[in-house]
Design a protein around this nucleic acid. Structure first.
Length: 421
RNA sequence: GUGGUCGUAGCUCAGCUGGUAGAGCAUCCGGUUGUGGUCCGGAAUGUCGCGGGUUCGAGCCCCGUCGAUCACCCCA
């Protein structure tokens, strides 16, 4: 048992699974790039106030899940619990919104929330996110959803569904929550549940208990409160999604954990992940930019949970690719050969071949075993004979066949062989 | 933050009603001169998560603690 342990609730990826993780992340990123999003690389910590103002003081994320500390200059710093606020800060700070709109960016990295760990819920987790800032166009909403959809299709995920809704503008929300609260006061709720509803009445829609769900059946629905403009925007989003062949269900009781969402909101829910089933979600945020001191621009984006999407792939038994096989494994059998092996490997590597060597003083048999374990396509023994004759046997590790090559032209011969596979 | 379950070699696990630990896989070495995968033989490995307590004696009982896991809360 090692003396040090990883901090509670962090996910770690090491071989072989790390290749799967990287593949999932790369696939998500690729989808964003294919739709014209460009990388924005941001710090993992920000001024605490960015999140309290941006995400919302009353949200659980801000009120009880942030990793906040004081730096040496006495500033309050917080490890980012989500990505959108940081993107907005950077866009405002560097005037990225002064050019052509929308600004389309993607990001990827770690996020932090101090929650009790659970299946698919970590204190440090990975997201790939995108933001399209500056245009309030329903087609962009559809595009953002499509970027996630395309990535999931590419990965081969099937057992999930997409829920969408419209949360309306802030005025609509105000009028609606007032009525909803009114309705809730007419219900006979236990203390804890009532407390919960006081914080955010929408949460009762999410309650796991049947009796509460039944009670909420008759509650007012936000959709009925939408302004004509919001309603039209939302139906246009739906029409576009249908035209793109993206299936969805409308969930007019969707609850979002971050305060800044307005208008279109959506969530991808996987069916085999237990309690933490959201693999990605996002929505439009109209007031966020201005609330953070920027222009009156709206935006829309999503965050996809890389850890959870990997778990979803595994739950669906999707076979994810491993790293490409090593091309050559050299087995030197004495000191002189070792020096030549290093030289040879160096030459090949700098020319783009993947090469490994049997290090240590292993016997030939051990070296060949190492070659086998490495998964390399070819193995080559180097010893006195090879050095004196200048030629060696390249052994195909799958067929067991060997062919003679001259060390001088090894690179070309290897290139030929690799191409043949 | 609350609750349930769990914590034995690198991995997966066994260990009966308390008597100071085992298997499979993996690792390493070997099966006569320089070629892996199968097979055979052999070896190494654990302060039984950590700290206390009960006991003549604890991996097995009790308490605490750390971690994992599942659920709640919440969410990616």
């Amino acid at each position: 048992m090692s003396k040090f342990q990883a901090p509670k609730g962090v996910s770690e990826y090491f071989p072989q699974r790390s290749a799967h993780f990287e593949f999932v992340r790369a696939t998500l990123i690729e989808s964003a790039k294919l739709s014209g999003y460009q990388l924005i690389e941001l710090p993992v910590f920000e001024d605490t106030e960015l999140f309290t103002r941006g995400v919302g003081e009353s949200t659980d994320v801000v009120s009880k899940e942030m990793y906040t500390f004081e730096d040496r200059g006495g500033r309050s710093i917080t490890l980012r619990p989500e990505g959108t606020a940081g993107v907005m800060r950077s866009v405002i700070e560097h005037n990225l919104d002064r050019g052509q709109l929308p600004v389309k960016v993607w990001y990827s990295g770690q996020f932090f929330r101090a929650e009790r760990p659970q299946a698919g819920r970590y204190r440090q987790f990975y997201q790939v996110g995108i933001e399209a800032i500056g245009l309030n166009d329903p087609e962009i909403d559809a595009e953002v959803i499509a970027v996630a959809h395309n990535a999931f299709v590419k990965l081969g995920l099937k057992d999930y569904h997409l829920e969408i809704t419209s949360l309306g503008d802030s005025l609509t929300r105000e009028r609606y929550t007032k009525d909803l609260r009114q309705y809730i006061t007419t219900l006979a709720l236990d203390e804890a549940t009532f407390e919960r509803s006081a914080l955010n009445p929408l949460r009762l829609f999410d309650d796991k208990r049947e009796e509460i769900r039944a009670l909420m059946q008759k509650a007012p629905v936000l959709m009925d409160y939408l302004t004509p403009e919001s309603a039209e925007h939302f139906s246009q989003v739906q029409r576009t999604l249908k035209a793109l062949g993206i299936e969805f269900t409308i969930n007019n009781r969707m609850v979002r954990g971050l305060d800044y969402y307005t208008g279109t909101a959506f969530e991808f829910v996987h069916h085999r992940l237990g309690a933490q089933s959201g693999i990605g979600g996002g929505g439009r945020y109209d007031g966020l930019m201005s609330a953070l001191g920027g222009a009156e621009l709206s935006g829309i984006g999503f965050g996809l949970g890389v850890d959870r999407i990997l778990l979803a792939c595994e739950a669906e038994e999707i076979s994810l690719p491993q790293d490409a096989a090593l091309q050559l494994f050299i087995v030197p059998i004495d000191e002189a050969a070792k020096a030549i092996a290093m030289q040879t490997a160096q030459n090949l590597r700098t020319n783009g071949f993947s090469v490994d060597i049997a290090y240590g003083d292993r016997a030939l048999k051990g070296g060949m075993k190492a070659a086998d374990k490495s998964g390399a396509r070819y193995a080559m023994v180097l010893g006195e004979n090879e050095i004196s004759t200048g030629s060696a046997q390249l052994k195909n590790m799958q067929t067991g066949e060997s062919i003679s090559v001259t060390l001088r032209t090894l690179q070309d011969e290897l290139a030929q062989l690799i191409k043949l596979i």
